[in-house]
Amino acid sequence: MTITHQDELDGMMEIGRIVANTVRAMKDAIEPGMTTAELDIIGDALLQREGAQSAPRMTYDFPGATCISVNEAIAHGIPGNRRFKRGDLVNIDVSAEKNGFFADTGASFCFGTAHPRLVKLCQDGQRATDIGVAQVGTDRPLGGIGRAIGRFAADRGYTLVRNLASHGVGRSLHEYPEEIPTWPERGEKRRIGKGLVLTVEPFLSTGAFWADRGDDDWTLYSHPNAPVVQFEHTVIATDGAPIIVTLPA
């Protein structure tokens, strides 16, 4: 989607706020022994209260309102009977639609006290995303996002999962430009148009390069097996600093 009118910007800002607030509220609601399904119910209720609906459910018939991935699961985790325990590495990904506008956001965090290496990975995952967001602007190279994130990762000894990319968003959950690399990709020659709406969502790891699909046909796991974190924002390109749609209010 490319923003051309104020009402489009207003619609994107509204759904962006909703999904961002939902991620934050879900994170705050986790308690030891709670199941991922119970947390998903909370997220679903928050979306409905705001007049929004789950985008993965409406678009792909995903078996949950939100994606909740724990430890070895790195993305698209189906809410179920898994119970949270202190020290877990958790990722919550929320995308939703309201009034024809879609926004997508996510965050990884350690629940309770965790190994310092995991805490540092989460901090650096957020930094990697911020670095990527800073590359978004009118007529800037789309590949600049992945190059900047790649430099940050390489300098600190991290790897990037290379088959989970960023994407366009706005009037649908996934749209042009599809498969925006968040790693260095020499063949990426596209440029960013003014008003373009896209996600920035690198998957930073201590050793993984790929995501493999599990037996449930949804949940993704790291390969080689290593901790992975993901932070995601929906952003809009402008002539100046990008507009981050998915900030909690």
Rank of each mutant, 00 (worst) to 15 (best):
M1R: 08
T4Q: 12
Q6K: 11
E8M: 11
G11S: 08
M12W: 09
M13H: 12
E14V: 10
I15E: 06
V19D: 03
A20E: 04
A20D: 09
A20F: 02
V23T: 14
A25C: 04
P32R: 04
G43Q: 01
A52W: 13
P56T: 10
R57W: 09
R57I: 02
G64I: 09
G64W: 02
A65T: 15
A65H: 14
T66G: 05
I68V: 05
I78R: 10
P79N: 07
P79L: 07
R83V: 15
L89R: 01
I92A: 05
V94Q: 01
V94E: 06
S108E: 06
G112M: 07
P116Y: 06
G125I: 07
Q126K: 10
T129M: 12
I131E: 06
I131K: 02
G132Y: 08
V133N: 01
Q135E: 13
P141I: 10
G143Q: 06
G143V: 03
Y158E: 01
L160I: 05
V161F: 09
R162S: 11
N163F: 09
L164T: 07
H167F: 06
H174Y: 14
E178K: 12
E179G: 12
P181W: 15
E185H: 14
G187I: 14
K189L: 08
K189S: 09
G193M: 07
L196S: 05
L196Q: 14
L196C: 11
V197N: 00
P202N: 04
F203T: 01
T206L: 14
G207V: 02
F209G: 14
W210N: 06
W210K: 15
R213A: 04
D216Q: 06
W218Q: 04
P224W: 08
I236C: 04
D239I: 10
A241I: 01
I244F: 11
T246R: 14
